[in-house]
Design a protein around this nucleic acid. Sequence first.
DNA 1: CTTTAAATTTAGTTGAGACTAAAAATAAAT
DNA 2: ATTTATTTTTAGTCTCAACTAAATTTAAAG
Lengths: 234, 234
Amino acid sequence: MVRMAHNGSNGPNKLKIMDKPQLSESQEDYLKHIFKLREVNETVTTQDLSESLKVRPASVTGMIKKLSSMELIYHRPYKGVVLTELGEKIALEVLRHHRLLELYLVDHLNYTWDEIHDEAERLEHVISEKFEAAISKLMGNPTRDPHGDPIPSVDLEIPEMPDLVSVDRLHAGQEAVIQRVLTQDKDILNMLSRLELTIDANILMVGSDKTGIRLKVGNNQYLIPYSIAKLIWV
Amino acid sequence: MVRMAHNGSNGPNKLKIMDKPQLSESQEDYLKHIFKLREVNETVTTQDLSESLKVRPASVTGMIKKLSSMELIYHRPYKGVVLTELGEKIALEVLRHHRLLELYLVDHLNYTWDEIHDEAERLEHVISEKFEAAISKLMGNPTRDPHGDPIPSVDLEIPEMPDLVSVDRLHAGQEAVIQRVLTQDKDILNMLSRLELTIDANILMVGSDKTGIRLKVGNNQYLIPYSIAKLIWV
DNA sequence: CTTTAAATTTAGTTGAGACTAAAAATAAAT
DNA sequence: ATTTATTTTTAGTCTCAACTAAATTTAAAG
Ligand SMILES: [Mn+2]
Ligand SMILES: [Mn+2]
Ligand SMILES: [Mn+2]
Ligand SMILES: [Mn+2]
């Protein structure tokens, strides 16, 4: 049973979208992961993808060849891959779905921080453009998801992000507002939300030592190990 | 990339659900179609499924063998299939997803009658139990979808439906309330909704002749051909 | 009954997208 | 510069769920 295209109602004004090939769920995930790895890594290797997609390297090579032949990525054998213009558009489309969905689940269906990722991971591939537009409008075309990650706009531009630093870079006495949390690990998210170390929270750096940093949040004060502090950007 | 199970957070109270095998999208659709065909047909043949799923008969036979070996259906070769107890539970679970989704799309995302079916058809397979519960709760655990079809309850019982007759059975002068519309044809649904022949609409049977029936709705009066009148139940 | 038609099943193929095992290319270490 | 280790690619296999073509079974007509 082959999954069908569902570009929504293709009004005459959406011509550019029309020539996007219909991709499989796997292919969409590959493109998305390439995009996200590139934000961090400078180069995206077969192994990077193997780890992040939890697929064996040989399989990754196979998919790379296919995406390459579709001109969605450019591949220098033994070196790595980069997204083509079209490949990046598709990656951003999926990312937009994912992040709008995460925000929607939190805002409208009472999901908690640690529950949204897996649900969005599956839904991102099956919602129509109509669905995307509907939830975006309902939320006032937001630009940040519940982790503080930027939501690509309808025309697939990434909204400007202010320059951020991880919270361990603050000096003692400095105050700041949490803007972004770079993890989808359920246990970490669960812990952070219980400590009220969530997006928009006001924090005060009390001090730091070799074990970690001391943060004051509201009336409470915690010791946060560096491994976790590095995930929190202000 | 194999799709993973997502039974939601399996609290200790949901043991019975746990031994439901994880099915593919196709398998879920087969079970759902068998259930729906059975509501109408008394017997469900290979051809019935072939037509309703738009899959060749040989392929249907193949899937029948698999579902049969999984004890989700019972198959008398050359005769037809029936759902086992477990098969029916799964069919109802999918149907519950589908119908809750349709209602949700109308009530919360401003979808029109003719837009909901295709979207629900894809989403029904990927939403979690958590998502199902969330939208059900949000809508006050509804028992009817936007077509008037019954929504199976959380424990997968079909809610009682009052006895209905198709609108062409009314005699002149009789009034009635539309309870159910038995089609997913987009054009018919679109037409009916423009005529305000929607669920809960009050109608008056004016009269009938060989071409169709005359219905009064609000201040307007229409001639409805029998082919369409048979789809409207009151 | 016997022949013909229709429905169903069998047999074999295809394409996606994973996998393992082994070969080839690149990078690191002696 | 060789040798060794790591990464990447090739080659071939597997499962799933579709397909076509042909054989078989059941149903309908003469
Ligand atoms: Mn995904
Ligand atoms: Mn996110
Ligand atoms: Mn479906
Ligand atoms: Mn319906």
